[in-house]
Design a protein around this nucleic acid. Sequence first.
DNA 1: GATGAATGAGCTTTCATTCAT
DNA 2: CATGAATGAAAGCTCATTCAT
Lengths: 205, 205, 205, 205
Amino acid sequence: MIDHDNKVELINKREVTKSNNRSLIINAGIKVFMEKGVSEATVRDIIRFTGLASGTFYNYFSSKEEVLVAIVDDFALGIGQILRINKDKPKDFEEYLLIRITIFLNYVISRPELYLIMTNNQNIINNFSIITPQVILEIDFLKEEVKKGTEKGIFPEIDFELFALVLQPVVDALAQDMMLQKRPNVKECTNRCVNFLLNGLVENK
Amino acid sequence: MIDHDNKVELINKREVTKSNNRSLIINAGIKVFMEKGVSEATVRDIIRFTGLASGTFYNYFSSKEEVLVAIVDDFALGIGQILRINKDKPKDFEEYLLIRITIFLNYVISRPELYLIMTNNQNIINNFSIITPQVILEIDFLKEEVKKGTEKGIFPEIDFELFALVLQPVVDALAQDMMLQKRPNVKECTNRCVNFLLNGLVENK
Amino acid sequence: MIDHDNKVELINKREVTKSNNRSLIINAGIKVFMEKGVSEATVRDIIRFTGLASGTFYNYFSSKEEVLVAIVDDFALGIGQILRINKDKPKDFEEYLLIRITIFLNYVISRPELYLIMTNNQNIINNFSIITPQVILEIDFLKEEVKKGTEKGIFPEIDFELFALVLQPVVDALAQDMMLQKRPNVKECTNRCVNFLLNGLVENK
Amino acid sequence: MIDHDNKVELINKREVTKSNNRSLIINAGIKVFMEKGVSEATVRDIIRFTGLASGTFYNYFSSKEEVLVAIVDDFALGIGQILRINKDKPKDFEEYLLIRITIFLNYVISRPELYLIMTNNQNIINNFSIITPQVILEIDFLKEEVKKGTEKGIFPEIDFELFALVLQPVVDALAQDMMLQKRPNVKECTNRCVNFLLNGLVENK
DNA sequence: GATGAATGAGCTTTCATTCAT
DNA sequence: CATGAATGAAAGCTCATTCAT
């Protein structure tokens, strides 16, 4: 029994170090990518930040881009889970957008660096992984939801392609503006988004 | 005689401009940036393309980023001139947007590489110069125009800040989609933009 | 019963030898040295081939060169044993050479990889150990045999130093040529060697 | 005129530096290859020896192997020229061999490092260039010469393939032995070679 | 004795930049 | 102004080797 416990403990210790180093590198990557931008960052910058030996980096990743992908994956995974967990039944399109965008902006505010790294380096991300930038908002998932809502008759007929094209850049633009404020206000930003998406620039027609 | 001399001078100027080392470098920059992306491109790549000696590069620019800025400036200058030259008097906001966006999309289509280089490298452009990406559409100039139109009463009251934030990303998203088509259709794309900007996603309310 | 136990023990020993880590490493070394050449091979390549952990390598060898030496030793040991076991009494020098070279070429043909590794890496072997390439044919042993034959009067007076210098390269050259043939013919090759060694290039004088 | 002269001078100065650096690197290569062997040598070792900057190496060669090839080419070129210049008309095969081997051994003695580098690294040379190790003695050229001599009837009928296989290793073995002597004696070594090649080990039959 | 992650020296190579010509 | 070889900092990466487990 003691032997067995020992073994387990040993393995765990190693496992812990292992995952520690991985996080160490990812976190260093986040800091470096924020400071210098992904394209200017070097593998050496990242390991310098971790305090690990240079060789250790390559035990976990084989390029800075893989670190970037790990960061993006982490973000996308998080937002994907929250989006899917949500079980609200919006009564109309406006409520639907309000809910979705609120979730997204709250998530963004909880991980501002991840969000900024992603929006600032979409071209690199595109080139390096299957994960399209749309993953960020999981656009395709939302598009399907909207289609279903329309089929059910609770959502209006809209141009789904336009929706898919425009949602991300609009929300990004307003989200980035929000994050520049001293006191980012998710509610206000959400309303702005939804109003614009529903009514365009000219509100009271 | 004077006329003749002038002509000759002009031609010479053009010739000079054409084979001008500065232009040579800028054009090489455009090709290289298109092929490898700005962050992967090197000064060496660019001079290799020109056939000039490496030292010559530094008589004109002191980094590849300066070449990028020159490219962006050139694009911005071009669109700026056209925007200002235009003397149409739009009768309302819709017409105004139609005119402006048509001009922009035509310009984009006439210089697709410049546009793609810019949209694909906004992070670098942001980091390197004061020139914000909004320069591309000369957003501030348009904002002023819109304000004036509103003051004159021919444009509706709109949220000018929202307009400034949202115009660029929306037009970019649709422009990029347009350029992926086999036969890019400026008119169609313009209508899509304007409709969305004016009415939002839900058209027939 | 004892017999039976013995047998089992023997089999076990063999099993152990077979799956013995040392042999595992040596065999991996042979494969890797054949594929990449000694100088391009790395310790990592070798352990990768064994499936062992990298640290384990150092329980048996302290460098890839030591593995090489082990391979060479193994080859030399083998040929040495056979040479010494042989109890033929040649009646003259020609018969002596025929016997010796036949033994050697048969041994070479039975272990082509070992032989190729050795002949292709003589510089490394020389630099790394006292074992000269002559070990391969156990030149010194043969030299002594020849001297004794000469003393006995059954061998002619020859230049022993020349013999020692020339035997190895001549046999190697013809052995390598033989191994390039579709159907290596030991007898033919042996005759060629012996004829040349005895009569030089011009046979019928 | 002055201008013209100046230009020529300038170009010459550059050319001189250029060829100086090339030689500098080749000579450093020779020293390093002698000391560590080709497979252990690194590009860094070589540039350290020259005193040049690391980048400069790559203006002339793109790997240590290219330096090796340059060394080998130089040697082969030299021996090739001398072999072809020679206009002696040997009266028989013995005289022919004496002349050829004397030329070769004198050349070897005049460039001992080059010769040693080559003989010690034939495997690497084989892998890296079309130049086979036989180039060293220009075996094929000699083979043709011998064939012609046989046709003319002044040389005996010999096994040309055997000649081509055996000449190089035999001469190499004796040449290396010669170079280990305090006072290398070309004449003696040549005689040894020729005697062995003509008569085999047993001289007085 | 086996494991395999961590280490860091050190190699190859590129590249921006300078400067004598 | 043009040239292009020289420079050397610095990046990417590998690998032998150690050592806690």
